[in-house]
Design a protein around this nucleic acid. Structure first.
Lengths: 339, 339
DNA sequence: GTGAAAGCGCTAACAA
DNA sequence: TTGTTAGCGCTTTCAC
């Protein structure tokens, strides 16, 4: 029980394979009547073109290779947007995952073997020299990772702006004692820290500026909470949502009312931050826009169109949920005394 | 700047393409010296075999097509296990995602076009007739979904056993008033409900048996919590983790102490259930085992080996965290009075 | 508008 | 052990 091939359709329709090929691709050069008849036969025979054979001959694959990390929920969200954008641009995606036992090298090699026309890498951790080496072979677009290489395109969020928005929100609520739990040397951490500092300055709050060292995990947030207890602020912006939940947990265990006594803002709008139980105010990245830009840049390079910016920086926006409110004692802001 | 091909390597090494092919595949039929020389040249020229051309000719792709849903964190976890298992079996994976705007039909069609040798589908929602139709074209293994079709292989968790374990744990702690918030008509819900009933019977608790209708989301758990308030049990087993957190949230808002007043067990061991903030006792599926069996079954069908079970049912295990404890008033089990 | 022929990079018979 | 030949399913000249 062989598969249906172009030749089968050609035989059945009584035309040449070349003609069927033309029709199937929607290429010009076939009579309307023939076209219809071929299409009908193809449908009846349930013919599916063999992508591989097609691209073997044409040299093109119309394939965008995507490397993502299964451990990062955010990556999976971006995948959704990327499928949309790629579809609209007429490209297919081939996915290659990074897992605890499958490194970036392996993932990228597979993509190369699949003859993708461009690589879209989600926050790659490999050195930028490695990225540049890849870029010599194929167009490379990195997402959520800044790279200073002429040949590597970048699509990322304006993390400084995100932190800035968080502080603006808090300051607007009346907070002045706003601390920041940072992400150390992690990608994006420096920017988020900077955005915090800039916003504090802009609100004339430089004198309070307080940065506690944190990290990407719950433990980091929990540790930071302990440090904050020494001289509690009324609000904290945290490097990411996971760290923020770690902090929240310690807070609630110590019966610190959130947001009554302390407001908390996370970063990433991770799916769990939406849980009623966590209900975290957080900074959301504009996934659809990022995906759109990434595909646009990849196609841009593939088709060798001149112009356009190598780096695209997308603005995030704040998602206000239940962990932020006016500071304690603010006029008209007290919740009913809990008792 | 063309890619390096077999012919290039052959020229450079002064042998025929066929021989290079043999060497590259590690197939028998080449002298040790030649082999070494060819390998050396290939390495120097950075030769990468073209997978597509290879399989176009050989008719085999050594490819397992995987359909997963980006919205389901559990699916992503299983992916990790599947990569491991496939690698060991000498197969590659091609991934095709289901997203809010990309349905199962699209995902599967792409897999078919990629000429995968078998399809591994993560909890497909399509009717079993559709599954059977697919199975006529390629071996199909469904995971986390029971299907009664001779041609469709199934790898799933023993959900009845999972529920049973949850009840055993609770009963062992001294609970007698144990309720179950179910998943309605969702896949797996009937089994989990049954496991609860069987376990209750086994512990002589049939008289208390109490099933509240729920669902897969947080809202469902929250709604169920309201119902439970009428005649509170001392413990609840919930259809899944998400629903359990919805329930937990309502409980804590109403100052019901968990696990002091009420113990809660979820199902799935979702990544968020691990968060210190949620710290949910839950039933975990054995991902590595499931992945291993899925690949084994797929390969089994591909290579047309006779024997083996069409359906593989894997035992889950309970992960005990912070939402379960002895019932209120149980000897020696009271926490310090919270005051 | 349509068909014949060549060949993409590779593997599989077979011959040498 | 090695090379020759044919051809996987398709696209692409280039004739007709």
């Amino acid at each position: 029980m062989r598969r249906t091939t172009l030749a089968d359709v050609a035989d059945e329709a009584g035309v040449s394979v070349a003609l069927v090929s033309i029709v199937m691709r929607g290429a010009p050069g076939a009579g309307a009547a023939t076209r219809e008849r071929v299409l009908e036969v193809a449908r009846r025979l349930d013919y599916r073109p063999d992508t591989r054979a097609r691209l073997l001959r044409s040299g093109r694959s119309q394939l965008l290779g995507v490397m993502f990390d299964v451990r990062h929920p955010f990556h999976v969200d971006v995948l959704t947007g990327l499928y949309d954008a790629a579809g609209q641009a007429g490209y297919q995606l081939t996915l290659s995952a990074v897992t605890p036992r499958r490194d970036e090298q392996t993932a990228v090699t597979e993509l190369m073997q699949d003859r993708c026309e461009a690589l879209v890498l989600f926050s790659p951790r490999m050195p930028s020299a490695a990225l540049a080496a890849l870029a010599e072979q194929r167009p490379v677009v990195t997402m959520m990772r800044a790279v200073r290489r002429r040949d590597v395109d970048v699509v990322r969020t304006d993390d400084a702006l995100g932190s800035h928005q968080a502080v603006d929100h808090l300051a607007g609520l009346g907070h002045t004692r706003i601390a920041h739990v940072d992400g150390g040397a992690l990608p994006g951490a420096a920017e988020r820290r900077l955005g915090y500092q800039q916003a504090m300055a802009q609100h004339g709050l430089t004198s309070y500026e307080k940065i506690v060292s944190g990290g990407p995990g719950e433990e980091d947030g929990a540790r930071a909470a302990a440090v904050l207890f020494g001289d509690p602020p009324t609000a904290v912006t945290v490097f990411n949502d996971l760290s923020a939940t770690g902090l929240l947990d310690v807070l609630r265990r110590h019966r610190v009312d959130v947001p009554g006594d302390l407001s908390v803002v996370g970063y990433d709008d991770s799916s769990f931050s939406r849980l009623a139980h966590i209900d975290l105010t957080t900074v959301a990245q504009d996934i659809a826009a990022m995906a759109g830009h990434a595909v646009a840049r990849a196609v841009h390079r593939i088709e060798d169109t001149p112009g356009g910016d190598r780096e695209t920086i997308v603005a995030p926006h704040l998602v206000i949920r239940g962990t932020t409110a006016a500071p304690p004692g603010a006029p008209g802001s007290d919740p009913l005394p809990t008792g």
